[in-house]
Design a protein around this nucleic acid. Sequence first.
DNA 1: TGTACATCAGTGAACGCGCGTTCACTGATGTAC
DNA 2: TGTACATCAGTGAACGCGCGTTCACTGATGTAC
Lengths: 201, 201
Amino acid sequence: VLRLRVPYHHGDLRVALLDAAEELVRSRGVDGWSLREASAQVGVSPSAAYHHFASRDALVRALSHRIINRIGTAIRDAAAAFDDPGSRIVAIGQTYVRFALDDPAVWRLAFGVDDPEAPISPHPHDILAAELDRLDLGGAVFLLWAAMHGLATLLADGLLRFDDPAAVDVEAERLVRAVLSGLAGQSGPWPMVRSAYTDRQ
Amino acid sequence: VLRLRVPYHHGDLRVALLDAAEELVRSRGVDGWSLREASAQVGVSPSAAYHHFASRDALVRALSHRIINRIGTAIRDAAAAFDDPGSRIVAIGQTYVRFALDDPAVWRLAFGVDDPEAPISPHPHDILAAELDRLDLGGAVFLLWAAMHGLATLLADGLLRFDDPAAVDVEAERLVRAVLSGLAGQSGPWPMVRSAYTDRQ
DNA sequence: TGTACATCAGTGAACGCGCGTTCACTGATGTAC
DNA sequence: TGTACATCAGTGAACGCGCGTTCACTGATGTAC
């Protein structure tokens, strides 16, 4: 049978909508797009989306979820290339910061969504926490996370720019190592902390 | 003459609109409000705003400008209470982070606006830079800024929460001192950096 | 001090727009027998 | 293997909405003489 016509059923509209939305975020910014545009880009009517997402907001949350997951995977793999905890943490920081610089709008969406609805695995925060545990600095995850996140955010928002593209890795390493060495020997007491996405204290 | 009627001319509509917008940001989030709502809150027709701002966007930029200015003033004053550079920088960090925690939506708007249109004085970045110069760490401003900004952002976005309100100051100090001591002795080479709002390198 | 008049800062109606979402529907798929 | 039928995943028209911005206007202010 010749199948030149476009099929009535899409196949995997859910994923296609997420892809389209991600691309729109990338090109137009976190909020510069609509459900209708994403549907149009996939070649489907706006109402079709409602068979896969309860609302536009649910689509955005699912997208945020997917991106954080992707970042988590990337930094987990980056860490795996090293043995000593210091280098592993540096690799985590570099990968985290680089993602923000390379794909700023998508990055901003990922961490700008209020309620991610479901636990994320692997979450960047958890991976970092596991590494710090090995250095007996488990209570200080949030401090290192803050440093990484700050550099990432400044770069993503364009508030900070390096003339030399290679500087990102160098400076991410410098920041991570500075915090680690500045923290070395400290043993708390650490504050009771809650992080979104994880229930760890 | 009895003046019971509301006056035809407002007096200082520009500032009143900024105030209304700021309050709307505070209660509804960075983008959860309209020019029309701000006008209505002031008790003026929507078109009146166009005698003071070229567009909604111009209003938002002016608001961002005003807030960054306010933060700059606050941290400058906070630093002034101490003599030694370390304590001054800690005070800067604490004030910066506290603002984000106390007024998250307004904070997010302030640093989320692309192009501030005009130089800001005193800009938080410049104040921090001046302090680091005194420690011969001028080239590393952006690293300390990143750390502060990261902690501030995580708190403002609710990605990180302290159970104990007093923990903010303690941890902001710990982070600042960790970076400072981790950086001590380093003398570069520092990267060529551009920051928004300032043309410093 | 009084008057003419330019300028300034408001009004209010209207514009076109695209949005998220609903609804009754229909075409395609897959399963039971 | 063929047929009946439930279910699934689309369509397309319509909804009400509030938005930013424009325009011709008018009331108030302040200055020149």
